[in-house]
Design a protein around this nucleic acid. Structure first.
Lengths: 136, 136
DNA sequence: CCTTGCCTTGACGTCGGCGTCAAGGTGGAG
DNA sequence: CTCCACCTTGACGCCGACGTCAAGGCAAGG
């Protein structure tokens, strides 16, 4: 198949596919007319790339998975390098979740504090919550 | 004070402060020499900007907080527009946490599945764990 | 023959939040 | 007078993953 068809099957664009090729992730044969020529194994590569980038992997991080597939392994994560990326990524995501959770908690608190004055705009809750002079 | 001092007090750079000014977030007076001149209320603005961007707010999203402070309110979130941003941001963060959690769970599963073949490379665990032929 | 549609390469644009360099002004210390 | 540190404006660089436009080739259909 040609690049347009592959792009449509993979749910992406021809530009993205050429970009993957430029990054060395998706090598392409050429037909007599000089057009890029792909088969189903290439669709498989693109699917792997897309599903990984779709959950937050950088393109570079998909490389071990793609090379694993190109080496004939049944899945992209059948190789140690891929598993290593899994582990790094899992640690990153865990950390990110922790930080986002902390942010969420702070946002909830701040939101609760900031909403009160609008529901009771007249009565000040007596002077001194400990926030008036935070810096120095 | 001048821009270098403000930058140091706020823990940032002169370049960042000029950028904030260019975005209309941090207006600056000028002294006789044409130098930007700031006071403690400006430090307050920069502190507000930094604490918000530090937890993931885009610069544009800090605008209501900064304008709220400049309008003489005691805190950046004393205004309805700021509270509205809080709410939007909280929803975004909640959603982000959900998605990241889903990603984490998928990563854990995939990692568990991918690690097994390396821990038992020789003895197949009797034919049929459901992974040998996942696709087609 | 002309249009249409697919393909090619090349190259610049996008977004955010600055970093970094260039070229020059200003005032104080030695 | 020179050096130094601070300031000014202007403008290009960066990162990632492409979008978009330009200019052109190749084949099929009316």
């Amino acid at each position: 198949m040609r690049i347009g068809e592959l792009a449509e099957l993979a749910g992406t664009t021809t530009r993205a596919l050429r970009y993957y090729e430029a990054q060395g992730l998706l090598p392409a044969r050429r037909d007599a007319k000089g057009y890029r020529s792909y088969d189903l194994s290439d669709l498989r590569l693109v699917t792997e790339i897309r599903s990984l980038t779709g959950i937050g992997f950088a393109l570079e991080e998909t490389r071990p998975f793609v090379e694993c597939l190109r080496d004939g392994h049944p899945t992209g994560d059948s190789c140690p390098a891929s598993v290593a990326v899994y582990r790094r990524k899992l640690a990153e995501v865990d950390d990110l979740i922790d930080r986002m959770t902390a942010v969420r908690d702070r946002l909830r608190d701040q939101l609760a504090l900031a909403e009160v004055p609008f529901s009771t705009p007249v009565c000040a809750t007596s002077g001194g919550s400990g926030l008036e002079d935070a810096d120095g």
